[in-house]
Design a protein around this nucleic acid. Structure first.
Length: 656
RNA sequence: GCGCCCAUAGCUCAGCUGGAUAGAGCGUCGGACUACGAAUCCGAAGGUCAGAGGUUCGAAUCCUCUUGGGCGUACCA
């Protein structure tokens, strides 16, 4: 929206710097003053120059300003705060340009897509139900994808399915050994499979303690899974497919979608690993230690400087002594494929169809029924994985580098975030903390093995139930179906907002009370504010017959003098000017991978808008000029917010 | 031991590449609904930005150390 302004301003100021001090500055930064009354854009450049020029910053600022004027799009300029150059935009000009842009409906300033961005997220082991920790991952990954798509980037979302790992082996063993259930028996199990396995996974994990011999049987299961043949493999595949379907449905509830499910088993079956392994051996990256505890394994030396300090050679296992491949090994092969470096591709088949017609595809071992879109061949790859796996991510990147792909290693980005823990109150409520446990324990780790965690669907249900009560209370005229639909929208808004409002490297201590709040800094607060904006527009149409379309012609007749020198004018301008910076904010958020900035932007804007409509009524306003102007504000606010919320995967109900 | 992360109001958190009097939400106290719906708004109280040094015109923000916490350092992922 104001990129053009910025460029012109920079040129004028750099020229002024050149003529005054003989050289431009490397980077001219424009920030925003703490208050609108101080201006719209601010530059601290005079402070930087003060030492070199040996003059007071304020004096430099004034000289610079004189030399740079007249400034395009700027109504007034000021020096304040001891040397800041503060610029006031031409408000009427800016507003009508902004309005026309919004009305045109086109997304301006699309970044030129430089190639596909592949985002890998969710990645839940298909041996149990999804839990709150997985929700954080999925919401972050999905929001990142939405943000890039908003910017015009080419995005592909992949959800990697580890169907040949130890965790699936655990439940396969649990099924056969503890329950005596084979593939045919799955249908007769009570309830949903992912919930059933939640308990079974915990049970089998506990059983290893008493029956260590079971670990040997698990190794056999793991070998079978990798070989992809026999009863265990068939049972494993059956479990994985069914559980993944549940995960996809769970995530669909919170507007998280995927393009492709790459199966680890297919990486093995398609010989991607064999190919990668050959390269790793030939390049000397993978080797077999003769002795020591890793004798018989194939390992990779870790060259990170931190590890060398330890004195001992750091090595990471790629192939276990029993011949099975670790996650690291398979992941290196997967990363190579994602970058299109394997000269090989999967077969594909459709896996799931969303109501809007979009499809999730799945990798497959034999040619599928239909021609699939082109997958992989990414330019930049984002791996959304929590910070506990930082070391593994580094090692995978090292693998790429060792195979001669340093550029790809650089563009394989670990989107790292801290984990979700359960608050003490939450853990107690769920029965994860025995009575009399150490009062110093403030939070409890989520653990699938121990069956400790809040299942994603349970949480969504609880939030939905609460929203249902609130919606019903406020809207007695709603049909049960309307109540249900609205409540689900609100629950999703609350949940998604909650999951991205925190800094990514802050541990979220999950607590029901916080997550279930619909007031203050929450998704529903923002949804409510947009609903109110819609209501104002609806009512003004009923009572005055005015519609946003009328603004197309009315906007040119609006007298904007009230915008300057009045409290209303400042607030009015503040809201719209800030709202126009959404795209800037999205760029910043994707640059820093700090998506909490998106949430904060929306909350701040909503807060200002709420304050505005309380103080300045639209429909009752007698002065026609002001009434049109206020309606313009309400309209633009709503348009901006709907777009912003959509980027966060949050919908706005008609009423709530 | 080594590596990564965190420490800001009673609680939960913001504070963008160092910049103008440190901000929200919740909670507490006080106020505003025969309505553009109070899931809202207005006001008040509440902070040696863990501690100590350093860099700088300027530090919550950068550097060093200390303390306290989380996580990693598997032939789990």
């Amino acid at each position: 929206m104001f990129d053009p302004y910025r460029e012109q301003l920079n040129r004028r100021f750099q020229n002024a710097l050149l003529s005054l001090f003989g050289e431009p500055v490397p980077r001219l930064v424009w920030s925003h003053p703490p208050k609108v009354q101080l201006g719209d854009l601010a530059s601290p450049v005079a402070f930087d120059l003060a030492k070199r020029v040996r003059k007071a910053p304020a004096e430099i600022a004034r000289e610079l300003l004189r030399a740079a004027e007249p400034l395009p799009g700027i109504a007034r300029a000021d020096v304040a705060g001891g040397g800041y150059i503060n610029l006031f935009l031409d408000r009427p000009g800016f507003l009508s340009a902004m309005f026309r842009e919004v009305r045109s409906g086109k997304k301006p300033d699309q970044t030129a897509a430089r190639g596909k961005r592949i985002i890998e997220h969710t990645n839940i082991n298909p041996n149990k139900a999804a839990h709150v920790g997985h929700l954080r991952n999925a919401v972050l990954g999905d929001t990142l994808g939405r943000a890039f798509r908003y910017l015009g980037e080419n995005v592909e979302i992949q959800n990697y399915i580890d169907d040949t790992g130890v965790q699936v082996a655990d439940v396969v063993l649990g099924m056969s050994h503890l329950r005596g259930i084979d593939r045919a028996g799955i249908d007769s199990l009570p309830g949903r499979l992912d919930y059933y396995l939640w308990d079974l996974y915990r049970e089998i994990t506990e059983r290893y303690e008493k029956e260590p011999a079971l670990l040997e049987r698990r190794r056999q299961v793991l070998r079978d899974l990798e070989a992809g043949q026999g009863d265990n493999a068939r049972l494993g595949r059956e479990i994985a497919v069914r559980v993944v379907r549940r995960h996809v449905e769970t995530m669909q509830r919170i507007n998280v979608t995927y393009d492709l499910l790459p199966w680890e088993g297919d990486i093995l079956a398609e010989k991607f690993w064999d190919k990668t392994f050959r390269n790793l051996r030939e390049s000397g990256t993978a080797y077999q230690p003769e002795k020591g505890k890793l004798a018989g394994c194939w390992v990779m030396r870790i060259q990170s400087s931190e590890d060398q300090e330890a004195g001992e050679e750091a090595e990471k296992v790629l192939v276990r002594s029993d011949g099975t491949v670790t996650y690291i090994g398979k992941d290196i092969a997967y990363q190579l494929w994602k970058f299109g470096l394997l000269n090989a591709d999967f077969s594909y088949r459709p896996f799931f169809r969303y109501p809007d017609g979009r499809e999730i595809w799945s990798t497959e071992r034999s040619p599928g029924p239909r021609k699939a879109p082109s997958f992989g061949q990414g330019q930049i790859i984002y791996n959304v994985i929590d910070s506990r796996q930082a070391r593994l991510q580094r090692i995978v990147a090292e693998g790429l580098r060792a195979l001669g792909h340093p550029g790809e290693a650089e563009r394989s980005i670990h989107f790292s975030y801290e984990m979700v823990k359960l608050s003490r109150a939450c853990a107690e409520e769920m029965g994860f903390l025995p009575a009399g446990s150490d009062p110093g324990i403030k939070s409890v780790e989520i653990s699938g093995r121990k069956g400790q965690g809040i299942k994603a669907d349970d949480l969504i249900d609880i939030m939905s139930d609460k929203a249902t009560r609130e919606v019903g209370k406020r809207n007695p005229d709603f049909s049960p179906e309307e109540i249900r639909k609205t409540a689900e929208t609100i629950a999703v808004g609350a949940l998604r907002y909650f999951m991205i409002k925190f800094n990514r490297n802050r541990v979220i201590t999950f607590d029901f009370q916080d997550a279930l709040s619909f007031e203050g800094d929450t998704g529903p607060y923002i949804q409510y504010s947009v609903v109110r904006a819609s209501n104002i527009l609806r009512k003004i149409k009923e009572r005055s017959g005015w519609t946003p379309k009328d603004l197309d012609s009315e906007i040119d007749t609006i007298d904007w003098t009230f915008l300057t020198g009045s409290e209303e004018g400042d607030l009015f301008w503040d809201i719209l000017f800030q709202g126009s910076q959404w795209r800037e904010r999205v760029l910043q958020a994707t640059d820093t991978l700090e998506l909490s900035q998106l949430a904060r932007f929306c909350f701040q804007l909503s807060k200002k808008f709420n304050g505005y409509y309380h103080r300045y009524p639209v429909i009752q306003e007698k002065d026609k000029n002001r009434k049109w102007a206020r309606m313009l504000l309400v309209y633009l606010y709503r348009q901006q917010m709907v777009q912003a919320l959509d980027t966060m995967g949050i919908e706005v109900p008609d009423r709530m």
